[in-house]
Each structure stands twice: as structure tokens, then as C-alpha cells.
Design a protein around this nucleic acid. Sequence first.
DNA 1: TCGGGACTATGCTCTGCAGGCATGGAACTG
DNA 2: CAGTTCCATGCCTGCAGAGCATAGTCCCGA
Lengths: 297, 297
Amino acid sequence: MELRTLGYFVAVAETGSVSAAADVVHVTQPALSRQIRQLETELGVELFTRAGGRLQLSAAGRQFLPHAQDVLRRADGARNAARSYAAGRLERITIAAPTTTLTDVIAPFLATLGRDDPMPTVSESDPREAYDALRHGADLAIATEPPPARLASTALAVLPVWAYVRADHQWHDRDSVRLKDLATETVLALTPAFKPRQILDRAMERAGVSPGTVVDCSNPQVAQALAAAGRGAAVVSDDPRFGLHPLEIVGRDGPLRIELFAAWEPGHHAAETLGELAARLRLFCVDRYGADVAPTG
Amino acid sequence: MELRTLGYFVAVAETGSVSAAADVVHVTQPALSRQIRQLETELGVELFTRAGGRLQLSAAGRQFLPHAQDVLRRADGARNAARSYAAGRLERITIAAPTTTLTDVIAPFLATLGRDDPMPTVSESDPREAYDALRHGADLAIATEPPPARLASTALAVLPVWAYVRADHQWHDRDSVRLKDLATETVLALTPAFKPRQILDRAMERAGVSPGTVVDCSNPQVAQALAAAGRGAAVVSDDPRFGLHPLEIVGRDGPLRIELFAAWEPGHHAAETLGELAARLRLFCVDRYGADVAPTG
DNA sequence: TCGGGACTATGCTCTGCAGGCATGGAACTG
DNA sequence: CAGTTCCATGCCTGCAGAGCATAGTCCCGA
């Protein structure tokens, strides 16, 4: 049973005769006649009754017909899908990103996608391995490391690393805090696996500031919750919760910032679409986070 | 693109290598390698990336994979369906019957079918052509004529032809009426296309009774409605409506009766199932109409 | 750095099957 | 009864698909 054979069967069933169907499928009547018989033998079912030199769809054939038509339709669908991939279309897109980026940036961005856009799937990835995800099912990778040169990429945004304190904190009327001042407060930092923590550590090291009390939080929400409880300053890059007051953290080279990049395989069949999507994501970041966008292309 | 080819693609995609897939689909690695390339050429899409001697599903391939799997699954479904037809199973059944039988007998019977029974479709047919319907899509035909010998068949029931009169009619305390008495009342009969009318006409002729006033009604409900309006006696075989009072009509050879038969093609792939269904329909008629069942097999 | 192993691609060959042509046979039609 | 229409069968051919042998490529470990 092959698609060709099924097509023959459907043609004969629909035209009502082998001769007529032969015209439709562009083979000769004898070839078609044989194929139909072979199909019947293979399936073990009489699809047609041969009453009086003519062919007539049998009861079994009537039941089988919709199955055959269905398979052919699906096959057509698959072919068309392939054609659309060849044309650079993307039906579904898998986006790999670290957790924080996923919830704060990607998720709200996905909400802006329209019906014509690919159906998105997201895959949480370790920030260090985000670009590797492109080799294992992801179409677009978002990460905080600059992507390797071999990938096509766009810089999406430069986001501040915030120090969040309670509204009644002594810093509640300030917009920013210097690193060495921050070191005097209990720092509710993330574990070193998180980018904001790495940035904080590096900035402290470069500024020669020795950290004061640091509490490792496994999760930005926890850090913020502790800050809301007045237990210190949460250093994260998330959006603020619990009515916390945000402060920029000023280091030796200016405010602490975390970069965001989108990257994809340049050989991806829909590389163009991916580029457009990345550009839209960048604009989305501009809208959402103001002018803090990297000019790099 | 054939089912075989799609199977090859899925095997390679799922095993992750041509060599491994070759074992699965029982062809040699070179043959498989070529088939995959041909499929890619035909579809115009790179399904795999050939990075470093190894094959890796490309983004387009990842999108295409579910399509291919779907087609294969459906094809399997079709094959299984065919197998079940070969085993005499029936997924859907089309029952042809005249209108009255359809609403009064078949419809309530269908309500008793279970989930394992075939999904029924009914087709209203002219009583004279019911058996011809077997040649044009019907699996089971119900009719009032005895079926031709070449068909497999069962007698289902013998139903009375009723004379329905209003509850305040002069006959309201009688169970039956004789033909010649009926001829003194206005007879609300069906058009001659309906079996009850034919039976009435033949019985009158045989009894040598000349009919009195006869009103042709195109439809049993109309006849009953007129009877309910006190315009005469409705002669039909339907169930009573409007609280009408039923009378058996006694002719020369006893009460007027209408027979009901089920017939099907003896060569039908599910002839056995059809026979069982007909037997159940017969039992259903017993339950519904009492002992008025023909003993014929 | 080199050799072995694992994998894919390609050249060559062969076989089986699909399809074409010619023809026979059956049934309906006028 | 001849003509037409349709399906089946025999025979032949060409091609696609599959096998075998082998070359090329990459990775890994000694």
C-alpha cells in the first residue's frame, strides 16, 4: 500500500470506472486495473464488486474510501508543509532562554504574537548552554553571553541589575546605590549560576570592594521576598514585586548591566523569519524597558 | 513521496542515524542514504544537516517529522480498517427504509445501539426501490415487499394497518372495524405511493367493497391530524398521535397487515454482522409491537 | 600525530515491478 | 446481431530501488 496506490483507488472509486480513472491519474487502463487488484489482494478485502463487466464500489470499499482519502489529504498537507518550509516559513518555533528571561521578557513577548506567527514553544535552558540548545531542537536562543561568531544574532537589550529595597528603607529616596555602599547592607544575591550574581561578583572584584553579608537565594522571587521582609537588598534583574523600590547599582564602569542576545543558526531554513522575530523582540524590549537598548546589530 | 519513503525518514529521524535506521527498516545503509536525499530533493527541503559526517535533523526536518508521523499513523489506521473489514467488521452502516418505518421503527431501534455497534446512517428510500438501494450505498434495506430471493433477508414484523378515529367517534368503544363499515366513513388515506394505501386498496378490491369518500393525504401525520379534527378515519401504519383511538381493519382474509422485511447482499463483507443486526431489529419489533411477529426466518 | 572505528556518500550492477501495448471476453444498446 | 464500452490478461520494456564494494570524513584515543 503506497500513496500512489491509494490515489488510484480513490480515483477509481470517485470516477466509478477504471477507464475514466486511468485518464485522471495518467496511466493506462490495464495498469490501473492491475494495481487495484493488487491493492485488494494486499489488503485482503474486495474493494469493488465485478458485476457484469463493470466495477462497483463494494460495501467494504465504501468504508475504506474515507480512510484512503484521509491519508491522501494528510500526505498533501505534509507536502505543502514541506513546500512552506522551503519558502522559509516556520509553523512552530522553539525558543530557548534562561528562566528569568523566559518569564520577564519572552512570555510577555509571546503574548504579542499574532495568528500568522509561528506557534511558540519555550524551553528553559541553562544560560551557559543556551546556544547549544540550537543544536538540540531550539530555533532561537536567548542568552546573556555574547553569541559565538558562527551564529546569526541580534543584541536585544541592556537591562539594569537592580538592587531592590523595601519602600521604608533608608535608600528609599535614592535612584541608585554605589557598590561600596551596597556592601554595607545585607545583599540578597542569587546563586552563582545566575548571571546577575556573576555580574555583581565581577563588578565588586573590579572595584576592589569586598562584599559584606551575602545571602545566596536560589531564585529571584525568594530574593525579592526577603527584601520585602526587610532582610536586605535583593540584587536581581527581574521586574520588581511586592512594591519594592528599585536602585541602579553603580560600579567602577557605571551602572551594573546585563546584556541580552538572540541567536540562531544562519543555515536555518527560516533564518530570515527568525531574524525578523528577533528584531521584533528587540523593539518589544525597547517599549518595555525604555531606551536601554544596545545599538549593535 | 511514498509511504515507504516517509517511513524511512521517520526511522532515520527517530534513530538519529542512517546506519541505525537501516537496521530498523531492513534495507542497507546506502539505499537508505539515497532515499533520504531523494526525498529532500523532491520536497525541496533539507531535512537533515550533514555536519561532520553525521546526520542531524534540521529545523525543517523537525517541523516535518510530525507531519510524516501523522501520515504514517493514518495509513496504519487505514490498513487496520481494511483488516477489520476483511474480518467482517462494520464501522458504519447505512440503512435504507421508507419514511414511516424510519421514524417509527428504525429511529427508536438506533437509539438502542451501543458503542461497539457500527455508526448508523439512514437513507430514506421509496418503498419499491429499497432493495435497489443496496446497490447504491445501503448496507441494510428495510421494506414492506418480500425481498427477492438473491438477497439474504429476515422477516421483521407484521404490523397492523390501523384506522384511527377521534376518541368521541361512534366507534370509540370498538377494537376493530370491518372494511365495508369503513367504507361508510370518510377515509383519510395516504397517497397510493404508500404501502398502507396499497394494502387498503387491494383488500377493498378483494372484498368487493367499493370505497366511499377517500381523501388522499401525502403524509401520515396529516392524515392523523385530520382524523383528530373529526374529519374521518385515518388509515395508516404509524404509531397513534393526538390521542386517536386505534381500530384494526378486518377484511375478507382477516385484519389488514403490513409486513416488514430486512434484506442485505449475501456477498456483503459483513453479511454476518448484518444478519445479527437484523435479528436484533426483529426482537426489537417484538418488544415494541407485541407478538405480531412473523415466524419466517 | 597517527591509526582505527563509526558513519555517510557514491559508483556500479542487478532485479523486480510498474506501466505500456495488444488483445480477449463480457455485458449493455440499438 | 453488430457495435460500443469496459475490464482482464499476456507479453515486453524501462526504471527505480536495493545490494555490494569502496571512498571520504570526522572523532577519539593511544
